[in-house]
């Protein structure tokens, strides 16, 4: 029974991937590019959900972890001419290593302390990149995954290629993550989140499972960082501002941090916000100042509104409403 469900889920993912593939042939270039961005955000957001929702920690340092992944992929590609696929693996490993260090620190910190420490990291780390010539200073590095293979046809565009890579990566990592979360590790995290002391009494090593959560989350973040820099084409300190960490946090809260199943909501919203902001700015004929700041304003406002009104995310909200209705029917 269980086995059947598992393979069913795999089939579902494959079917979903196929639909995406068909879709990418139908829409225009901009949409394909946005599709790639959505896939990247899906990965990045799920890395935060993994941490916040399943282990009860808030990290603002994910921008820094994305940067680690992106830089290590670019360095591997540029300096050592590593094959592209391996570059992504290196990104995962490098960020995961960063995650171990962060996790060791985090295992001893809770709530606001961790948030503040990672905030300091998010501000500090990208500026450190300026100091190493191998990292390209303020200009940063080029990260080029090359042209799509010719076998895909002449009119297979670069963006479509990005989309394929990102979507495939997203599907694979979502599948892996959802399995990890159903495993014993995932259950331990949740136990640690809701009742740290009780979990400790039950023999769960909450410290170790926090470190593990950080490591996996960081690895996933590193992957999304590498993919992000692939779609931009370069890696530079300015690509990982504090605003990125904020956006990702917003995406995670919007998706609902207690479950992975809403992750598309956050990703699509993050990609849509600049467009929505554009439309609004045009409608009200806003000045340039306002236009450039509108996306940030929308992101932050959404973050606040979600925390206030849908703190558990739309998916969980929907579920509990349904459960309530069922209960009423029974009575």
């Amino acid at each position: 029974m269980h086995r059947f469900q598992k393979s069913n889920k795999l089939l579902l993912f494959i079917a979903f991937g196929f639909i995406l593939f068909l879709l990418s042939n139908r829409v225009d270039e901009l949409r394909v590019y946005q599709g790639a961005s959505i896939a990247v955000y899906v990965i990045a957001i799920s890395s935060i959900i993994l941490l916040t929702g399943y282990s009860g920690q808030v990290s603002l340092g994910h921008g820094a972890l994305l940067a680690i992944g992106a830089y290590s992929a670019a360095v591997a590609r540029n300096e050592f001419n590593v094959p592209v696929v391996l570059c992504f693996f290196i990104a995962v490993l490098a960020a995961a290593f960063g995650g171990v260090l962060l996790g060791v620190a985090a295992a001893r910190l809770t709530g606001p302390y961790l948030a503040g420490a990672t905030l300091a990291l998010a501000i500090g780390l990208p500026s450190l990149a300026n100091q190493f010539t191998i990292l390209g200073g303020e200009q940063g590095l080029i990260f080029d995954v090359g042209f799509p293979p010719l076998s895909l046809g002449e009119d297979f565009t670069q963006y479509k290629w990005f989309f394929w890579i990102s979507a495939l990566a997203a599907l694979i990592s979502m599948w892996l993550l959802s399995n990890v979360l159903r495993s014993r590790f995932g259950q331990n995290w949740r136990a640690g989140r809701s009742h740290e002391v009780a979990a400790q009494l039950a023999g769960i090593n909450t410290g170790r499972s926090k470190i593990l959560a950080f490591t996996i989350s960081a690895g996933v973040a590193g992957l999304s960082g590498a993919l992000l820099s692939m779609t931009i084409g370069t890696v530079s300190p300015s690509a990982f501002p504090l605003a990125l960490s904020f956006s990702l946090l917003t995406g995670a809260v919007l998706s609902g941090v207690t479950t992975l199943s809403g992750v598309m909501i956050g990703a699509v919203t993050l990609v849509a916000i600049p467009e929505i902001a554009d439309v609004i700015a045009n409608r009200i004929g806003a000045s340039e100042r306002i236009t450039t700041n509108l996306p940030g304003l929308i992101v932050s406002t959404l973050l606040i509104i979600t925390v206030l009104f849908v703190p558990h995310g739309p998916v969980e909200q929907h579920r509990s409403r349904k459960a309530k209705k069922l209960l009423q029917k029974k009575n």
């Binding site: 916040t52 929702g53 904020f246 207690t258 973050l303 925390v307 558990h312």
Partner: peptide, 18 residues
């Protein structure tokens, strides 16, 4: 609720952004 511990943190961060 599940995120009661981190909600104030997230909210003040949102404020910072606003």
């Amino acid at each position: 609720g599940a995120i009661s511990g981190v909600a104030p943190i997230i909210a003040t961060l949102g404020l910072l952004g606003v």
